[in-house]
Simulated scan of single mutants.
Amino acid sequence: MTLGQRVIDGYVLTKEEALNILHTEDKELLTLINEAYHVRYHYYQNKVKLNMILNAKSGLCAEDCGYCGQSVKANTGCSQYALVDEQQLVKGAGAAVEHRIGTYCIVMSGRKPTNREVDRVTNAVETIKEKYPTLKICACLGLTNDEQAKKLKAAGVDRYNHNINTSERYHDEVVSTHSYQDRVNTIEIMKNNHISPCSGVICGMGETDEDIVNMAFALKEINADSIPVNFLHAIKGTKFEDKDELTPNKCLKILALFRLVNPTKEIRVSGGREVNLRSLQPLSLYMANSIFVGDYLVTNGQPNEEDYQMIQDLGFEIETNAFTNDPSLIES
């Protein structure tokens, strides 16, 4: 029996087996991809979920995350602005619908939101849900408390993103202004309030293969519904500006690892895919069933049309909401 079928049948990989996935010889890479694709197809067939980010508040973040161009510790010249108004948040949702996006992600820079900022987001989400009732809303606002989570849930927020980013062992090499447990606590607050947890990683920041394995198993333990797998896009002016540790093949092995360790979960190939996977991007969708379309926070993605063409060329299908092809529901 193949590894993929064993995983479908309920087998849980050991950490040693997971590490061996990352050490797969390149000549065996297509076999590994096929095993992971077998699992992906079992749960998601050939459908691809599309996600879009709105950078709703940019820059001026007091945290010192080594990868981030929005930190005040970085010298990147990124845009700096306060939380946009409700009208812009709603307009962004309309753009998401127009581009056949399934999940619209409202992202804020900063350690944590103020209550006033949460109120602005929740007011906008209520309007979005009235206009586009099946559009999924993901909020990414930083560290939150129970009261704020309850407001988000009541407004209609479907999912909350707060990445663990790296392993617990390596965390202090990435950021010193908050702890690994701070991040886990935020995810647990969302779960306790019945908001779907989204949590992922950034690979290529100097972590070991053992760290990557531990990330995959940590997210399994957290039971994150959606797992964005980011590959470091080194930004000039950040602590990690000179890191260039990934190859396209290594990225594919990482995606196979996350699919086989978290077989039933939405695995999203995320930030940095364009610069790290390069011409091998299409192969990532044999393991990941979800992607971001458009630009990221302070880095550019590839044109939407190239993503749509990639999906079509693979013979895959965009997983659309029922209303997204009805232009009468989209406001200019």
Rank of each mutant, 00 (worst) to 15 (best):
A218Y: 03
V48A: 10
S58V: 14
T134F: 00
C198E: 07
K150S: 09
Q309H: 04
K191L: 14
Y44N: 12
K250L: 15
Y296P: 12
P113N: 01
N46Q: 07
M215F: 14
Y170W: 12
D211F: 14
L141P: 00
N193P: 06
L60Q: 03
A288S: 13
N325I: 15
E266N: 14
K265Y: 02
S71N: 11
Q5H: 12
D64E: 07
K153C: 00
T76M: 07
D225L: 04
L143K: 04
N34F: 07
N223Q: 15
S270W: 02
G272S: 00
I53S: 04
T24I: 15
V90I: 11
M108E: 08
E28G: 13
G102I: 00
S284H: 04
N325C: 15
Y180D: 06
V175K: 14
V184K: 11
N163D: 06
A18T: 11
N192S: 09
N276I: 03
C198R: 01
I330G: 01
L54I: 15
G294H: 02
N34Q: 13
V298A: 14
C140Y: 02
A82K: 08
V107P: 09
T31M: 13
D172M: 11
V261D: 12
C203F: 15
V121K: 10
A124C: 07
A288V: 09
Y81C: 02
V175D: 03
D64W: 09
M1W: 13
N46T: 13
V39T: 05
A154G: 01
R259H: 07
A154T: 03
T114P: 05
S79H: 11
I318Y: 09
T134Y: 06
C198D: 00
N300P: 04
V125W: 05
E17S: 09
E331Y: 08
S284A: 15
N145W: 04
M52A: 07
L255S: 06
L260R: 07
I128V: 01
H233Y: 06
K129G: 02
R268G: 10
S79G: 04
A95E: 14
L30C: 11
N304D: 15
L141I: 01
R40W: 02
K153L: 01
T2G: 12
N276R: 03
S226Q: 09
T177P: 11
L219A: 00
N214H: 08
P263V: 07
F231L: 12
G4L: 05
D244Y: 09
N214Q: 05
F231E: 08
I195Y: 00
N193M: 04
Q87T: 07
A149C: 13
M52R: 07
T208S: 15
V201T: 14
S167L: 09
D9T: 04
E147Y: 01
E221Q: 11
I101E: 00
I311F: 11
P263I: 11
P248Y: 08
G204K: 09
A124Q: 06
T103G: 07
I318W: 08
I187H: 06
C78K: 05
R259V: 00
V229T: 11
G94N: 13
E16T: 04
M108H: 01
V48M: 14
